[in-house]
């Protein structure tokens, strides 16, 4: 698959990455090579092979529905760059 600079710009925006215009062509080329590598898998005989969702043959283990968390609010909020009145603060979001 060919990745062009427009695609790079788009996925960079979705991922909140800043890529300078001068770098777009180079990154596009690198991503194309990564995808080409992955594309080699398309030649593998995969008929009847189920798509893999997880590399290990594990099933989920479950938790019983009980509240066992201790109240860590103070500790957790203290890690935030900014908090006030029990709320995490972020720059104003305008809807």
């Amino acid at each position: 698959m060919r990745i062009d600079p427009a695609i790079v710009r788009r996925i960079a925006r979705l991922a909140r990455l800043s890529i300078a215009d001068g770098d777009l062509a180079r990154v596009a080329g690198e991503l194309t090579r990564v995808l080409d590598l992955a594309d080699q898998l398309a030649d593998a005989p995969l008929a009847g092979v189920e798509p893999m969702a997880h590399p290990q043959a594990l099933a989920l283990s479950w938790r019983d529905d009980a509240v066992t968390a201790s109240d860590d609010a103070g500790t957790l909020l203290a890690l935030a760059p900014e908090a006030r009145g029990g709320l995490y603060l972020v720059p104003k979001v305008i809807e």
């Binding site: 006030r84 709320l87 603060l89 972020v90 720059p91 104003k92």
Partner: peptide
Amino acid sequence: LHDVFHAATGID
């Protein structure tokens, strides 16, 4: 919470 603070948004 957009209306609690003047210049910031609060998150719960």
